[in-house]
Design a protein around this nucleic acid. Structure first.
Lengths: 346, 346
DNA sequence: CTGTTAGCGCATTCAC
DNA sequence: GTGAATGCGCTAACAG
C-alpha cells in the first residue's frame, strides 16, 4: 500500500476538531442532519479534514461495511480484441459514474485461469463481476460466478440464469436489409454464418433474411468464407460474376468487407456504383476504406456501460437478456436509392 | 461485497482443526516450517480449510498488512485505442503472474478525472500505479502520483523522476532503414513527423535518418500528411512521380501505409515490385493489406507487462527509462534484395 | 511448538 | 447531540 505522507486517521480529524470519532464519522458520511449535529462541529470537522489532508481508509471501511466499492471485469481476451476493448471503456466510465473502481483480468480463454481470477476477485471482495467475451457466444461460467452477483457481457449462459447484455444482432441484420432492399441486382451474403461458433453470423443472417422477406426479397446467395481479409478476397474473387452487378454484398463483418473490396477492385467493379456493400461491426476499419464502408455497428462502449449498470441495479430489475441496438454507421458504400425506410412495409 | 454461501473465518478453521488462530495463520501463510508446527496440526488445518471451503478475507488482511495485492493502471484512453489496449493485456498478465489484481480506469484525457481516479486508487490502497498513454509522449503527472510508487507507460515525465517504459522508436527507425537501404530508387518518408505532438514520428524519423547515413544513404523526400488513411492517400497520390520507382516508402504508421497502398494502386504502381513499403506500428491492419505490410511493431503487450514488473521491482533497480525494442513484422511489401543485415556496416 | 493479546481504521449501538 | 465501547477478520508480538 503506497502512501505519500503519513496519513491522518479519522481519530486525528476528530481530535483536531475537538469532537469524538463518532461525530466525525457521521459528518463525513453525510448524516450530520439526521443526527442533528451542530453546524459549528460540522465546520470544525470539515476544516480539520482539509488541514490534515484526511482521506478515509477504504480498506478499513470495507472490512466494516462488507462493501469494497469495486467491480470486477473478467474476460477471455477483450483487451486484445481489435476494438472490443471499448467494452472496457464503457465499463470503466460507468463504474466511475457510480464512484466504483474496476478490476480487470484476462483469462485468454483458459478455464483454470478463469476460476483463479474469479476466486481472487471474490476474495478481494468485489461488489459484483462482469463476465465478458470477445465474441458474442454462449458460455458456461464457473460455478463460483454463477453463485455470486454477476452479469454476462456479449455472451449468454442459459444454465446460470445470470442476466446478460448483448448486441441485438437480429435487429442489426434487419437494418442491413433495409439498407439494400431496393437495389436492382441480387443480395448476396459474404462470410460463413457459423464462424467461430459465434452467435453473430447466424443471428445477423436471420435478421437479414427475415426483413428481406418482409420486403418481398430473398438472399440470392451466400459466399461462405472465414471472417478474414484474404479468405473473403479469394472467395469473392472466385464467385464474382457480371450478373451480380447492381446488387449488394452484405458482409458479415468489416474485415470480410475489406476482402470483398479488394476482390471487386481486381475485377474492376466500382463500389457503390456497380455494387453496394454493407457490413457489420462498425470498426475503425470501415472508415479507412475507400469509399468508406456503411456498417451496422457493435455498440461496444454502450454494452460495457450497460453491463455495469445492470450489475449495480437491484437483482431482477432487468430483463434476463438486454439487447442493445446496433446503429448504422453510414459510409459511402451504399447508394441511397438502394435503401428503404427502416420499419416501413417496403 | 458478494458472497455465495456463509464464509468461514480463520477462527472457524482453527476451531475445527483444534488449534489456535495463530497456528492456523502461520500454516496458511507457509510459515509452518519456520515455526516448527507439528505435521499433524498442519494436516488438520489443511483439511479443515477444504471442509469449510475457507478463503482468507483479503480486506482484513490488507487492513493488517497495509498491502492490498492490487495495482492500478490509469490511462487517457488506452482501452479505446485501436490496438494499444494490448498494453492492458500485458499488464493484466504480469499482474496475475505476481498474484496481483489490476485496477483500471480511463480518464479520457480529463485532468480532473485523472486526479480523482488517482486519488481513488490511492485511497483504495493500491500497491502501485501504472500511468499509461495512448500515444508515446511527454506528460505531466498529477502531484499525488509523483509522490507515490508509480511507473509511466508509453510516456515520460522528466519533472517527476518516475521510471518509464517506452518503445525504442529510434531503434525502430533504424530497423526500417535496414529494410530499405539497398533499394535502387529514393527512400521517401510519408507522414508528418510532428503529428499529434507525439514523440513517435520525430524519433522514428531520427533513427531512420541516422542509420541511412551510416549506410551511405539519405532520405530523398518527406511527404507530410496526417496519420490517417485518406490524408496519406491524397498526399502520396499528388506526390507520386515515376522517378520514385524502385524506391521505398517509409510510412510513419500502418494507416498511412494503407493510404499509400491506395494511392499507389491508383497509379498502377505495384508493391513491392515497383516500390517497397515499410511502416511502423505492426497493427492488425498490416496483415489485412495486400500484399501484407512489413511493419516495425510497437511491442504493446511487452510494454504493459514490463511496466508492471518495473513497478514491483525495488525502487531504483531499473534505469529511469526502459526502452523496449520494436520488432520487425515481416510482410510482403519489401523485396528481400532491398534489405541489409541489421547492424552491418552496409 | 502453541495460545493469548493487541491492534489495523472505521461504522455503529448504546448510554450519557 | 455526543462519546465510550465493540467488532469486522486477520497478523504478529509476546509469553508460555
Amino acid at each position: 500500500m503506497v502512501r505519500g505522507v503519513r496519513k491522518a486517521r479519522l481519530a486525528d480529524v476528530a481530535a483536531r476538531a475537538g469532537v469524538s470519532r463518532t461525530t466525525a464519522s457521521y459528518i463525513l458520511n453525510g448524516r450530520s442532519a439526521e443526527m442533528r449535529i451542530s453546524a459549528d462541529a460540522v465546520d470544525r470537522v470539515r476544516s480539520a479534514v482539509v488541514d490534515l489532508g484526511y482521506r478515509p481508509n477504504r480498506t478499513a471501511r470495507s472490512l466494516r461495511t462488507a462493501r469494497t466499492g469495486t467491480v470486477g471485469l473478467v474476460s477471455d481476451s477483450v483487451a486484445s480484441g481489435h476494438f472490443a476493448s471499448r467494452m472496457l471503456t464503457g465499463a470503466s466510465a460507468a463504474a466511475r459514474e457510480s464512484d466504483l473502481l474496476l478490476l480487470v483480468g484476462e483469462t485468454d480463454g483458459d478455464p483454470l485461469v478463469e476460476r483463479l481470477l474469479v476466486d481472487q476477485m471474490l476474495d478481494q471482495g468485489v461488489d459484483g463481476i462482469v463476465y465478458a467475451t470477445l465474441r458474442h457466444r454462449e458460455v458456461s461460467v464457473p460455478l463460483a460466478l454463477a453463485q455470486s452477483r454477476a452479469v454476462l457481457l456479449n455472451c449468454v449462459d442459459p444454465a446460470s440464469g445470470l442476466p446478460a447484455v448483448v448486441p441485438d444482432e437480429v435487429g442489426g441484420g434487419r437494418s442491413a436489409a433495409d439498407l439494400v432492399a431496393r437495389c436492382a441486382g441480387p443480395v448476396v451474403v459474404v462470410g460463413d454464418e457459423a464462424e467461430q461458433g459465434s452467435y453473430a453470423g447466424a443471428m445477423r443472417l436471420a435478421g437479414l433474411e427475415e426483413r428481406l422477406g418482409e420486403l418481398g426479397r430473398t438472399i440470392a446467395d451466400v459466399v461462405r468464407c472465414d471472417w478474414t481479409v484474404p479468405a473473403a478476397r479469394d472467395a469473392v474473387s472466385c464467385w464474382w460474376t457480371p450478373a451480380a452487378r447492381d446488387g449488394a454484398l452484405v458482409c458479415l463483418n468489416d474485415r470480410v468487407a475489406m476482402g470483398a473490396y479488394q476482390a471487386l477492385a481486381a475485377h474492376g467493379a466500382v463500389v457503390p456504383d456497380d455494387v453496394a456493400v454493407v457490413s457489420f461491426d462498425g470498426s475503425d476499419l470501415a472508415g479507412w476504406l475507400t469509399p468508406t464502408l456503411t456498417s451496422v455497428a457493435l455498440p461496444f462502449v454502450a454494452l460495457g456501460a450497460r453491463a455495469v449498470e445492470v450489475l449495480l441495479a437491484p437483482p431482477g430489475s432487468h430483463a434476463p437478456v438486454t439487447r442493445l441496438a446496433m446503429p448504422v454507421v453510414r459510409g459511402g458504400s451504399v447508394p441511397a436509392a438502394a435503401a428503404v425506410t427502416p420499419g416501413s412495409a417496403g
